[in-house]
Design a protein around this nucleic acid. Structure first.
Lengths: 152, 152
DNA sequence: CATAATTCCTACTTAATTGATAGGTGTTTA
DNA sequence: TAAACACCTATCAATTAAGTAGGAATTATG
């Protein structure tokens, strides 16, 4: 049930883009520096995010990437799906990209007990990831930093 | 967040072993026929299950595998962990096999917002898989078959 | 005792995926 | 016009996934 680095990194980058007030474009170079991800690898991660219209890009000097929508309108679930595919542990248990059980892997088909279980798992994951927006994460990041401020 | 065929197959086999009344040993050959899994591949899947003492084996004629414990004492979560490792999407969010974030992947370390999110995901998955026993699944399988009986 | 059925063990293979790196082209602003 | 950028495609090494193959050890049974 592992997350790939692509999904992980994409989440970090979008969180980084959600931290500023209003949409400010950040270059791959800057994003790489802030997140510790290789710039060349990050370049590739940004492409599907742009294709999915989660971010907008501007070329040339002072170009970069910015969120295409407000952080409270982008969920982690969306990002993970773009980078890693459906949340469901099995294709037969995906709601956004359902694939019927081929007979050789799911002989009982109708009433497959395991499909029901994997659906429960999918829904449990979705309950967390589709309800968590980048505005939520940004807010948590800010409050998590409070102690340092108080420590003055 | 995909399940491997190993985890999937192991779950099917243990469900099959949970369906009979009392512990009856089934050979790999039989299990393969009932589940549609290659016998040679299934052989390899049984080994870690035995090492984890989830099943017991008997060699020779009339040998085979049986559950080592009562079906209501074996959870799907246990099986998936044996076959696929921790349930958590990130090693830093595992409760059973925690690995601290290395600095290069998690620069903020303390107060890493994403770790909190992955922990929520892990707990959501665990809520389903660690609460579902093979007795539950066997019961569901039996009741799922009822309609056919009623249809006489 | 012989034999067939079985687990057990190790090695191998093939294909896909992961996690990058490399090198260049097109675009924009100062 | 030059630097800073996004954009694009290819390549690569390592790992994992998914399975195959072949045989050794064990055991019940005729």
């Amino acid at each position: 049930m592992k997350l790939s680095t692509r999904g992980d990194y994409a989440t970090r980058v979008l969180l980084e883009l959600s931290l500023g007030e209003g949409p400010t474009a950040l270059s791959v170079h800057d994003l790489a520096a802030r997140t510790g991800i290789s710039a060349k690898y990050l370049e590739q991660i940004m492409m599907p995010l742009r294709a999915a219209q989660l971010v907008r890009s501007h070329r040339g000097v002072n170009g970069g990437y910015e969120l295409a929508r407000h952080p409270d309108d982008v969920t982690v679930g969306e990002v993970i799906r773009v980078m890693d595919g459906p949340l469901a542990p099995s294709p037969c248990a995906s709601r956004t990209a359902h694939v019927p059980c081929p007979a050789y892997r799911c002989p009982t088909e109708t009433g497959c007990v395991l499909r029901g279980l994997w659906l429960d798992v999918r829904d449990a994951i979705s309950d967390v990831l589709d309800r968590t927006t980048f505005a939520d994460l940004a807010e948590r990041q800010r409050t998590a930093k409070r102690p340092e401020v108080y420590a003055i």
